[in-house]
Design a protein around this nucleic acid. Sequence first.
DNA 1: CGCCGTCTTGCGTAAACCCGCAGCTTGTTG
DNA 2: CAACAAGCTGCGGGTTTACGCAAGACGGCG
Lengths: 240, 240
Amino acid sequence: MKVLIVEDDPLHRSYLHEAVNAALPECDTVIEAENGTAGEKLARDHKSAHIVMDLQMANRNGIEAARTIWKERPETRILFWSNYSDEAYVRGVSRIVPDGAAYGYVLKSASDERLKLALRSIFIESQCVIDREVRGLQQKSLGQTNGFTDSEYEILVDIALGLTDRAIAKRRSLSLRSVQNRLQQLYDKLDVYQTAGDDHEDGRFNLRARAVTIAFLRKLLNYSALERAEAELQEWLDEK
Amino acid sequence: MKVLIVEDDPLHRSYLHEAVNAALPECDTVIEAENGTAGEKLARDHKSAHIVMDLQMANRNGIEAARTIWKERPETRILFWSNYSDEAYVRGVSRIVPDGAAYGYVLKSASDERLKLALRSIFIESQCVIDREVRGLQQKSLGQTNGFTDSEYEILVDIALGLTDRAIAKRRSLSLRSVQNRLQQLYDKLDVYQTAGDDHEDGRFNLRARAVTIAFLRKLLNYSALERAEAELQEWLDEK
DNA sequence: CGCCGTCTTGCGTAAACCCGCAGCTTGTTG
DNA sequence: CAACAAGCTGCGGGTTTACGCAAGACGGCG
């Protein structure tokens, strides 16, 4: 049994290496990659390998890497190991996991025990293991309680990218008015108004920009989500 | 001689601990804090301590902590140790360093040697040590070559927060038109137009929102800068 | 002092944005 | 099937943005 570790930080890499050795005596080979690109290549070379993957990496982030790896071999088991439980990451991951694939998501702040347990559960028992904190977000982002619909999230990303209403309409095949409807819906959910008016006319906010800011501060969006969205946008621009 | 380590991640914390022991045999006490708040308190208790500080921490980030520490004891020597060299961080740091204070900025990707050397230079020799990469940014952000003026940066932050032109005018004591002038200036520098028009009328951008996105992608802004700015904004809103 | 560049401000306009109102299409439920 | 909720769409209008044009204000510099 082989395990591939994809992780930026040398300290964390060697820590993972040890953890894998300790938790999985049946594992005979551990390979390391220090960024997403190298990770993809090694995953291709060692087809049977299970993967432990960091999410935020400079060169090519974990979500990108996981996506291409899963595209080639959907049955690959991947354990995501991340510092953050931002909704943006969680959403990003659940967007790309293939049907029925075994995967995991544990936070770097988890104890040694938790990590080792997760390693065994996923790689040996083929179970999904998702940290409680992360799980909470996942529920919210799927269930409609309080969380965001896909269409709301979509339009959030679109204005975050800086598209005009018209451009969004074209991209999503909607009428201009519908786009604006969704925007209002988004403004509602994000509570842009409360912070906005207070009741003085003075400190008014630009709703569109404010919505993005709030989303950022609430970690509905983050750098890597923006980066991905920007790439998709460019793609779309090119083909249109 | 005492050294205080303020760092989120337990792995990095113990690594730093070792590095300090190895580089500074004259250091008899090493104290650790795992977030900004705890760091501030320990800094108060151990007045003579030199500090190694992580920048991005969950609870209270390094810049905040450093600011209050320096406010109480401006001669404190602080070595910032960070994963990133985003302009947003660099700018944030140079904004708060007291006149003539000895400080340092080294990246986590630096070699052991570099770190140890920096430790000795700052804590023993009272020299400023700033990683080459970081230094580059610093030049740019101070000199006007290609970089951003303070007033440009200021307005960037303001629209990122989601303020309207009018609100910005009020906050910065400018006329509405001046605010808009600065905005245009900003749009120029950020090259919002190039990506915008291409030459089709189709894929138009909302300049204001797009500018923020570009700034984010170029790391002129980041989460912690936004967070700080938001706090300042709230403060201003309250008193006005 | 007069010339010049940079910054500020006002006026005016076209476009984009925010949104209430109202008619339509769906899918759901009793 | 009737009734109802939810989403899409057009219309209309009030507000905000983006920006050209031009008139001052301020600070060097020959």
